[in-house]
Amino acid sequence: MAAASALMMGMTITACAEKEPTTAISAREGRDRVVELVFNTTKQLDVTGWWPRNGVAWAQECTPRSRGLEHATSSYSYDRWAPQGTDHIEDAKRVAKYWESLGMTVRTVNPTTHPTVFAEGGPVARAVFDTHAADQSYSVGATAPCSPGDSVALNKEDQAERDQGKVLPGDEGVVVQVDPPQ
Protein backbone atom coordinates (compact mmCIF):
# COMPACT_ATOMS: atom_id res chain seq x y z
CA MET A 1 0.00 0.00 0.00
CA ALA A 2 1.20 3.51 -0.69
CA ALA A 3 0.93 4.34 3.01
CA ALA A 4 3.46 1.65 3.91
CA SER A 5 5.83 2.97 1.24
CA ALA A 6 5.48 6.48 2.59
CA LEU A 7 6.04 5.13 6.10
CA MET A 8 9.23 3.40 4.94
CA MET A 9 10.54 6.61 3.40
CA GLY A 10 9.62 8.58 6.52
CA MET A 11 11.41 6.06 8.72
CA THR A 12 14.43 6.30 6.46
CA ILE A 13 14.61 10.06 6.68
CA THR A 14 13.75 10.63 10.34
CA ALA A 15 15.31 7.66 12.08
CA CYS A 16 18.84 8.95 11.61
CA ALA A 17 18.04 12.51 12.57
CA GLU A 18 20.03 13.84 15.50
CA LYS A 19 21.94 10.61 16.08
CA GLU A 20 25.68 10.29 16.28
CA PRO A 21 27.25 7.42 14.36
CA THR A 22 26.41 4.18 16.13
CA THR A 23 29.01 1.93 14.52
CA ALA A 24 32.56 2.12 13.32
CA ILE A 25 31.71 1.39 9.68
CA SER A 26 32.17 3.92 6.92
CA ALA A 27 29.24 5.30 4.96
CA ARG A 28 30.34 3.26 1.93
CA GLU A 29 30.54 0.07 4.01
CA GLY A 30 26.99 0.87 5.14
CA ARG A 31 25.94 1.25 1.50
CA ASP A 32 27.42 -2.12 0.64
CA ARG A 33 25.65 -3.78 3.58
CA VAL A 34 22.19 -2.41 2.73
CA VAL A 35 22.54 -3.41 -0.92
CA GLU A 36 23.71 -6.89 0.08
CA LEU A 37 20.85 -7.30 2.58
CA VAL A 38 18.23 -6.21 0.05
CA PHE A 39 19.58 -8.53 -2.68
CA ASN A 40 19.91 -11.48 -0.29
CA THR A 41 16.40 -10.88 1.04
CA THR A 42 14.90 -10.92 -2.46
CA LYS A 43 16.64 -14.27 -3.04
CA GLN A 44 14.60 -15.74 -0.17
CA LEU A 45 11.42 -15.30 -2.20
CA ASP A 46 10.09 -17.14 -5.23
CA VAL A 47 9.41 -13.83 -6.98
CA THR A 48 11.05 -12.56 -10.16
CA GLY A 49 11.29 -9.17 -11.80
CA TRP A 50 12.99 -7.17 -9.01
CA TRP A 51 14.01 -3.62 -9.92
CA PRO A 52 15.45 -0.62 -8.07
CA ARG A 53 12.36 1.59 -7.85
CA ASN A 54 14.19 4.68 -6.60
CA GLY A 55 17.31 4.13 -8.69
CA VAL A 56 20.63 3.62 -6.99
CA ALA A 57 21.69 3.39 -3.35
CA TRP A 58 21.74 6.95 -2.05
CA ALA A 59 23.14 8.78 0.94
CA GLN A 60 20.93 10.96 3.09
CA GLU A 61 21.76 13.36 5.86
CA CYS A 62 21.59 12.16 9.46
CA THR A 63 23.14 15.14 11.21
CA PRO A 64 24.26 18.21 9.31
CA ARG A 65 27.22 20.38 10.24
CA SER A 66 24.76 23.25 10.66
CA ARG A 67 23.67 21.69 13.97
CA GLY A 68 26.98 22.67 15.51
CA LEU A 69 28.61 19.29 15.06
CA GLU A 70 32.16 19.13 13.85
CA HIS A 71 31.30 16.62 11.14
CA ALA A 72 28.15 15.72 9.22
CA THR A 73 26.83 12.17 9.34
CA SER A 74 25.03 10.28 6.60
CA SER A 75 23.32 6.99 5.97
CA TYR A 76 22.76 5.07 2.75
CA SER A 77 19.40 3.53 1.83
CA TYR A 78 18.42 1.16 -0.93
CA ASP A 79 15.26 -0.60 -2.05
CA ARG A 80 14.07 -3.01 -4.71
CA TRP A 81 10.56 -3.77 -5.90
CA ALA A 82 8.91 -6.64 -7.74
CA PRO A 83 5.46 -7.65 -8.88
CA GLN A 84 3.47 -8.79 -5.87
CA GLY A 85 3.78 -12.48 -5.02
CA THR A 86 0.79 -14.75 -4.46
CA ASP A 87 1.51 -16.01 -0.92
CA HIS A 88 1.95 -12.81 1.10
CA ILE A 89 1.80 -14.45 4.51
CA GLU A 90 4.37 -17.16 3.77
CA ASP A 91 6.64 -14.68 2.02
CA ALA A 92 6.55 -12.40 5.06
CA LYS A 93 7.31 -15.33 7.35
CA ARG A 94 10.24 -16.35 5.14
CA VAL A 95 11.71 -12.82 5.23
CA ALA A 96 11.16 -12.53 9.00
CA LYS A 97 12.91 -15.86 9.58
CA TYR A 98 15.83 -14.86 7.34
CA TRP A 99 16.26 -11.51 9.08
CA GLU A 100 16.09 -13.15 12.51
CA SER A 101 18.87 -15.52 11.38
CA LEU A 102 21.01 -12.39 10.82
CA GLY A 103 20.46 -11.26 14.40
CA MET A 104 17.85 -8.64 13.54
CA THR A 105 14.94 -7.77 15.83
CA VAL A 106 11.81 -8.39 13.75
CA ARG A 107 8.15 -7.45 14.04
CA THR A 108 5.31 -8.01 11.58
CA VAL A 109 2.34 -5.70 11.13
CA ASN A 110 -0.96 -6.91 9.61
CA PRO A 111 0.20 -10.56 9.61
CA THR A 112 -3.04 -12.15 8.36
CA THR A 113 -3.62 -10.42 5.01
CA HIS A 114 -0.83 -8.22 3.59
CA PRO A 115 2.01 -8.27 6.12
CA THR A 116 4.73 -5.70 6.45
CA VAL A 117 7.90 -6.91 8.17
CA PHE A 118 10.09 -4.40 10.02
CA ALA A 119 13.55 -5.22 11.37
CA GLU A 120 16.36 -3.45 13.21
CA GLY A 121 19.96 -4.34 13.91
CA GLY A 122 22.08 -7.06 12.46
CA PRO A 123 24.05 -5.89 9.42
CA VAL A 124 21.98 -2.68 8.95
CA ALA A 125 20.17 -0.10 11.06
CA ARG A 126 16.72 -1.13 9.84
CA ALA A 127 14.86 -2.86 7.02
CA VAL A 128 11.30 -3.28 5.79
CA PHE A 129 9.52 -5.80 3.56
CA ASP A 130 6.10 -4.69 2.32
CA THR A 131 3.85 -7.29 0.66
CA HIS A 132 1.33 -4.67 -0.46
CA ALA A 133 3.36 -1.75 -1.80
CA ALA A 134 2.15 0.69 -4.44
CA ASP A 135 1.07 -0.66 -7.83
CA GLN A 136 0.47 -4.16 -6.39
CA SER A 137 4.16 -4.67 -5.71
CA TYR A 138 6.47 -6.11 -3.10
CA SER A 139 9.21 -3.87 -1.76
CA VAL A 140 12.33 -4.56 0.26
CA GLY A 141 14.35 -1.67 1.63
CA ALA A 142 17.15 -1.13 4.11
CA THR A 143 18.98 1.76 5.74
CA ALA A 144 22.54 1.73 7.07
CA PRO A 145 23.61 3.13 10.42
CA CYS A 146 24.68 6.77 10.42
CA SER A 147 28.38 7.22 9.66
CA PRO A 148 30.67 10.22 9.29
CA GLY A 149 30.27 11.91 5.91
CA ASP A 150 28.33 14.61 4.13
CA SER A 151 25.46 13.13 2.07
CA VAL A 152 25.76 15.69 -0.73
CA ALA A 153 29.49 15.03 -1.10
CA LEU A 154 29.01 11.25 -0.95
CA ASN A 155 26.33 11.32 -3.64
CA LYS A 156 28.45 13.61 -5.86
CA GLU A 157 31.47 11.32 -5.47
CA ASP A 158 29.32 8.28 -6.30
CA GLN A 159 27.96 9.99 -9.41
CA ALA A 160 31.46 11.00 -10.52
CA GLU A 161 32.49 7.33 -10.32
CA ARG A 162 29.41 6.32 -12.34
CA ASP A 163 30.24 9.00 -14.91
CA GLN A 164 33.63 7.29 -15.32
CA GLY A 165 31.87 3.99 -16.04
CA LYS A 166 32.09 2.35 -12.62
CA VAL A 167 29.14 0.25 -11.45
CA LEU A 168 28.64 0.76 -7.73
CA PRO A 169 26.79 -1.59 -5.36
CA GLY A 170 23.10 -0.90 -5.88
CA ASP A 171 23.50 0.18 -9.51
CA GLU A 172 22.43 -3.26 -10.73
CA GLY A 173 19.22 -3.08 -12.74
CA VAL A 174 19.37 0.66 -13.34
CA VAL A 175 18.59 1.65 -16.92
CA VAL A 176 21.36 3.92 -18.15
CA GLN A 177 20.23 6.84 -20.31
CA VAL A 178 22.64 7.51 -23.14
CA ASP A 179 22.37 10.86 -24.89
CA PRO A 180 21.97 10.41 -28.67
CA PRO A 181 24.75 11.81 -30.84
CA GLN A 182 24.03 15.30 -32.07
Rank of each mutant, 00 (worst) to 15 (best):
A2N: 15
A2C: 11
A6Q: 14
L7S: 07
M9N: 12
M11F: 14
I13K: 02
A15W: 08
C16Y: 03
A17I: 08
T22Y: 00
I25F: 06
I25D: 03
R33S: 06
R33A: 13
R33N: 10
F39T: 11
F39H: 13
N40L: 08
L45G: 05
D46M: 08
W50C: 06
V56N: 02
V56F: 01
A57W: 00
A59N: 04
C62W: 00
P64I: 10
S66V: 15
G68I: 11
E70F: 14
E70Y: 13
Y78C: 07
R80G: 02
W81A: 12
P83W: 10
T86E: 09
D87Y: 04
E90A: 15
D91H: 11
D91W: 06
A92L: 13
K93G: 14
Y98I: 10
Y98F: 15
E100G: 10
G103K: 11
M104T: 01
R107A: 09
T108I: 13
T108E: 01
T112F: 06
T112D: 11
G121T: 11
V128W: 02
F129T: 01
T131H: 05
H132L: 08
Q136V: 08
G141A: 08
A142F: 06
A144C: 05
K156M: 14
Q159A: 14
R162V: 07
Q164P: 06
G165H: 05
E172P: 01
